[in-house]
Each structure stands twice: as C-alpha cells, then as structure tokens.
C-alpha cells in the first residue's frame, strides 16, 4: 500500500493534473447531454433527469478507478518479460497472493484519492439522497466487480507466457469493459434487446449498476438480480481461474535479465 502510494505520488503535479483532466472528461459528457436535453425540450430521457445524467457520468468516471483491476495482468506481463517471475515465485508469500495484494493496494489508493472524493463531490453537488442500504449494495457491487476483473486479469496475465507482450490484449479487455459497462451512456438508454443482454454480463457491475444504485434509478429487486448475476459469474470465474493457474504454472520457464 505504501509502495503504491509512493508510486502514485512520484510525480505529484503530474498526478494531480491527470486527476483534474479525468474530471474534465466527465464534464464533456455533461455538456453534450445538456445540449441534447436543451434541444429535445424534455425534462427526462429514458427515465433520467438532466441532473441524474450529470451525476451518472461523474460516478462512472470515479468508479472505474476501483471496479476494474488491470494491475494483475500488467504486473504478470512485466514479470514474465523481465524474468522477475522466477524470484517472485521463490518468495515465501505465494506469487498469486502477492499479485492480488499488490493490485488491491493500487485499487485502495485509487479509491481513496480519486473515487471517494469524486463520488462525494457528485453526491453533494447534485443533492442526491443516498441511503445506507444503497451504500451497502454499492460496496458489494464494487467488490464483486473488482473480484471478477481480478480473475480475468489472472487469466489474461498468464497469456504473457505464450505471447510475451500482451498490452494489446490487456487494453482490449479494458475496451470491452468500458464499452459494455455503461461508460458511453446509461445501459437503460440502449435498445431494449441489447440492454437485456448487457445486463447479463459481468461488465454491468463495473459502472452502470453501481452508479444506478447510488442514483436510485433502478428498483431494489433489479439491483439484487444484477448482484446475483455477478455472483454467478464470479463463482464460475474463480473456479476456471484456479484450474487455469494450476495448469499454466507448469509451463512457466523464467528467463529475462
């Protein structure tokens, strides 16, 4: 955790400016939707008021820092490329555990420095009433999403054993997550058939469902159903990841230098 904090703040001003720009990207979508609402002359689109739309884009941006774990695959790739995987595997703490703890600390740092302040700003400025139940559900959704993307990160990371450089695959995964997770627009605005499919995928837990939970724009039974969908995905992915890691660990031949 201390290492992650130090890495994040190594170039402090660069870090701060990057954060501010992250906020500005949310502002772009806010301007766009303001223009859309103004031109359409309606107070609500797809059940979302303009105010809710503002908050949605702020939340989506904030949540992406903690719900998507790319650190596992990135670290595995670096370890394979540099040969550090051999020394890392020889340490008393298991390699996979070490990877998980490392990525968890990255997420916690992201959560404390970006997500929490941005969520608070969004909630306070929009006067959104957030119930303790919504906060509890949000926490479950965030943890589920983090766990799911961690499992996928392990599987993607092991591909570096075959392909050495997997930046493209890591980014492809991120692209799919952002694309399907609700970063473009709330999933409820998608065509009904597409929204129904997307709600069955784990990506909905990354942005749309947590933001919608906080905003209170989807009913409780739907939230519970989406959490259940996520839990089923997680169980299947944990099983698959464990089997995959056991199989793949036999293929590790470390070189590097």
């Amino acid at each position: 955790m201390r290492v992650s904090l130090r890495q994040a703040f190594a170039y402090k001003l660069d870090f701060i400016f990057t954060l501010i720009l992250g906020l500005l990207v949310s502002l772009v979508m806010i301007f766009v939707w303001y223009a859309v609402y103004a031109n359409s002359g309606v107070s609500s689109i797809g059940g979302l008021s303009l105010n809710a739309m503002y908050v949605y884009f702020f939340m989506v941006n904030a949540l992406s820092f903690i719900t998507y774990n790319a650190a596992v695959a990135q670290t595995m790739q670096e370890d394979v490329q540099t040969g550090a995987v051999s020394t890392a595997m020889a340490r008393p703490i298991g390699y996979n555990t070490n990877l998980f703890l490392n990525s968890l600390s990255v997420a916690i740092v992201g959560g404390l420095t970006v997500t929490l302040p941005m969520l608070l700003i969004a909630i306070v400025l929009s006067h959104t009433a957030v119930s303790p139940a919504a906060l509890g559900l949000l926490l479950i959704e965030v943890l589920l999403s983090f766990a799911i993307t961690t499992c996928i990160g392990y599987v993607i990371g092991t591909l570096s054993i075959y392909f050495v450089n997997i930046w493209g695959i890591i980014n492809l995964t991120g692209f799919v997550y952002y694309f399907l997770g609700g970063s473009l627009a709330p999933l409820s605005l998608f065509p009904k058939w597409l929204a129904n499919i997307l709600m069955l995928l784990p990506s909905q837990l990354m942005m749309y469902t947590p933001a919608a939970t906080l905003l209170g724009i989807i009913p409780m039974d739907e939230i519970i159903r989406e959490i259940a969908v996520g839990a089923v995905w997680l169980a299947a992915l944990v099983l698959f990841t464990l089997l995959w890691l056991r199989r793949i660990s036999r293929r590790v031949v470390a070189v590097g230098g």
Partner: peptide, 29 residues
C-alpha cells in the same frame, strides 16, 4: 500477436463515438 490485437483494437475505438451518437439520436432529437 500483440501487434495484431493492438491494430484491431485501435480500429475499433471509433465505435465509442458511433455508439454514443447513435444512442443520443436514438433517444432524442
């Protein structure tokens, strides 16, 4: 392999904009 994935992925990035505009024009004027 990674070059192929990168190039294919980058070609798809344009979809972000297309889909956003399609959604906007699908639900509003």
């Amino acid at each position: 392999m990674q070059a192929f994935v990168w190039l294919s992925l980058n070609a798809l990035f344009i979809l972000y904009g297309i889909l956003t505009v399609t959604i906007i024009y699908g639900v509003s004027s």
